[in-house]
Simulated assay, not measured.
Amino acid sequence: MRLLHTADWHLGRLFHNISLLEDQRHVLNQLIEIVDREAVDAVLIAGDIYDRSVPPATAVTLLDDVLGELCQARGLPVVIISGNHDGAERLGFGARHLRQAGLHILSDLSACDTPVTLAINGVEIDIFGVPYADPEYVRSQFGEPVRDFDSAHRYLLTRIGEKRHATRPTVLMSHCFVDGGSASDSERPLTLGGAESVAWEPMHSFDYVALGHLHGPQYRGGEHIRYSGSLLKYSFSEARQRKGVTLVDIGNEGVTGIEHRPLVPKREVRVLEGELDELLRQGREDLHADDYLLVRLTDRHAILDPMGKLRAIYPNVLHLEKPGMLGTQQRQQLDRERLRFNALDMFSDFFEQTSGDAMSADQARAMSDVITSLSRDEEGQP
């Protein structure tokens, strides 16, 4: 049996106020192509299907389109757990009726010890799902005095352990932060104070663990305890990550193979660094100038409307940094003498960019006199 593990779709997400819905549709079409090309038998989605608990209607429509392709058109079983971005009750609406169509939505924590059993190609496996739940909810639901995410997660796994089949391979799906995992800027913290992680050791006995929440593909404690990562890069801290899905081959004897399959975005997320003129020159030859960009300018002089100039070449510059203008802490706290020293140079740059011509010697002398006069007035000198 071949499983496709994916997670953290975040449908409806905005990236610096730009809708990513069409970018998400682009990679989800690739996911469907991978399902066809790789002869996938079932799809596991480990939480954060939506980006917020009340998703926009367009995001709901996109999910419906994708699930229609997987469940209805191809007859594949799809198993979903809810994540911390999802509204568990809304996501789970109609779950009992949808099972007949092959869609298994596991958002009810009280049923975490009830498996979805799949029998395909002579292989029978159990899939247990642990939707996102904070310790307070576990205490309320089960009356168990758990203190933190780890003790809550251990308790839920103990309940599941009591229902595991003696010989049947078992897959665990969980939306959580495994201790030691590599996080990104786009992941919403599960709690304040740093007590959000769970240990990987209690999950080690499962044949495969399909994790969600962390956006970078990675594994913890063993190659079979794995984050597939998100569909797209949702922050500039993820610029170097290789997004994709995970294929898992599992037989009656357990997992026989784990492979990563890349997804190619409609637009990449990149960080460009350099001086403005050089970046503009490069952009005129850049075949992917419409990528989502963070630009880090290294120029040390004042620049008039750098964002406007960049967007004339790179239309999707979403964030601009100017570390060259900041320098050290001492440079940030410029004293009056340094301001006076640089004022003429700064005005010269401004004059040239607005008029298109450099100041003449007479103009420079006149402006120098004005700056000197203003400085004296400020200091109360005659």
Rank of each mutant, 00 (worst) to 15 (best):
M1Q: 07
L4E: 06
H10F: 00
N17T: 15
S19W: 05
L21H: 14
D23G: 07
Q24S: 08
R25P: 06
V27L: 06
I34C: 00
D36V: 03
G47D: 06
S53T: 13
D64G: 04
D65V: 04
V66S: 03
L70I: 05
Q72K: 13
A73I: 01
R74K: 09
P77W: 07
N84S: 12
E89I: 13
R90I: 07
G92K: 02
R96E: 15
H97M: 14
L98A: 12
G102H: 03
S107P: 00
V116W: 04
T117E: 10
G122T: 04
E124T: 15
A133F: 04
S140P: 01
F142M: 06
G143M: 14
P145F: 10
A152L: 07
R154T: 00
L156V: 09
L156T: 07
L157N: 11
E162R: 13
K163G: 03
H165W: 03
R168I: 05
R168L: 03
R168C: 05
L172I: 08
M173I: 11
D179L: 09
S184P: 09
T191W: 04
G194T: 11
D207R: 09
V209N: 01
G216W: 05
P217R: 10
G221Y: 02
H224Q: 12
L231M: 13
L231S: 09
S235A: 09
S237R: 03
S237H: 09
S237L: 00
E238P: 01
R240S: 14
G244S: 07
T246E: 06
V248E: 00
D249Y: 07
E253W: 01
E253Y: 02
I258Q: 00
E259K: 06
H260I: 03
P262K: 03
P265I: 07
K266P: 01
V269T: 14
L272H: 06
E275I: 06
L280N: 14
Q282H: 12
G283Q: 09
E285H: 15
L287D: 13
L287F: 12
L287M: 10
L293S: 08
V295R: 02
L297R: 09
D299C: 04
D305S: 11
G308P: 01
R311M: 10
A312G: 10
I313E: 07
E321R: 08
Q329Y: 15
Q329A: 15
Q333E: 14
L334Q: 13
E337G: 01
D345N: 11
M346K: 04
F347H: 09
F351H: 15
D357W: 04
A361D: 15
A364V: 10
M367W: 13
V370L: 15
V370R: 12
I371S: 07
L374C: 12
D377T: 04
Q381Y: 05
